[in-house]
C-alpha cells in the first residue's frame, strides 16, 4: 500500500523493496540499495541523503557512451570530503518500482575519473540535483523505499 497525506493526496506513487547490504567489497556497513536505470542501463544504487548528485562509476558511464561534448569537465570537485576529478552530465534517472509506478526524472550525474575511491562503489543517489526532486520515505521494518514526485 502506498502512502497518502490526510487529504488523500498521494505522498508516494511508487514503492520498491530495497536491499540493506554493503556498498563495496571493502565495507560491512549496510546501505539502502535500490535498482535504477540511467538512460537504458539498469543497475543498482545506494541512497545517500547527505551526498550530492548521482555518482556514476566510470564503467557505467562507459557502457552508456556518454558524450564528452555534453559534459562540464571538472578539474577538481569536492565530494564526500575528497577532491576528485571527473565530469558532470545531465541524465535521465529512473527509480524502478515493484508497486505503483516507476518514475523518471532528470538528475545531474558526476562521473569520476577511474583512479578514485568513488569508482569502487556502485551508483550513489545523492540529494542535491538528484533525490531533492522526490518525496521519499523508508520503512526499515519491511525494507520498503517509497517515492513520488515532490513538485
Amino acid at each position: 500500500m502506498l502512502l497518502q497525506f490526510s487529504t488523500r493526496e498521494a505522498f508516494a506513487t511508487g514503492a520498491v523493496l530495497y536491499a540493506y547490504i554493503p556498498a563495496s567489497e571493502r565495507e560491512e556497513t549496510p546501505r539502502i540499495t535500490i535498482d535504477i536505470r540511467i538512460g537504458d542501463l539498469q543497475t543498482s544504487a545506494f541512497v545517500d541523503t547527505g551526498g550530492i548528485y548521482l555518482i556514476c562509476p566510470p564503467e557505467i558511464a562507459s557502457a552508456l557512451n556518454f558524450d564528452p561534448d555534453d559534459a562540464l569537465q571538472s578539474k577538481q570537485v569536492l565530494l564526500r570530503g575528497e577532491i576528485v576529478r571527473g565530469a558532470l552530465y545531465r541524465v535521465p534517472l529512473t527509480i524502478l518500482a515493484s508497486e505503483g509506478e516507476t518514475i523518471t526524472i532528470e538528475a545531474t550525474a558526476f562521473v569520476p575519473n577511474a583512479a578514485t575511491t568513488l569508482s569502487n562503489f556502485p551508483c550513489i543517489l545523492g540529494m542535491y540535483l538528484c533525490l531533492e526532486r522526490l518525496r521519499f520515505a523508508v520503512d526499515p521494518l519491511n525494507e520498503v523505499f517509497y517515492f513520488g514526485e515532490a513538485a
Binding site: 506513487t13 509506478e101 532528470e106 538528475a107 526532486r133 513538485a151
Partner: peptide, 30 residues
C-alpha cells in the same frame, strides 16, 4: 552546457507501470 548540467530539475517526471522483475531480481541477489 554548464547551465544545462547544473540547473535545478524542472522537467516533469515521467511514469511507467511497476516492473515485477525488480522483486524477482532482488530475490535472486539475496
Amino acid at each position: 552546457t554548464a547551465a544545462r548540467v547544473l540547473a535545478p530539475q524542472t522537467t516533469p517526471a515521467a511514469y511507467q507501470s511497476a516492473d515485477s522483475s525488480v522483486t524477482l531480481n532482488r530475490s535472486w541477489l539475496k
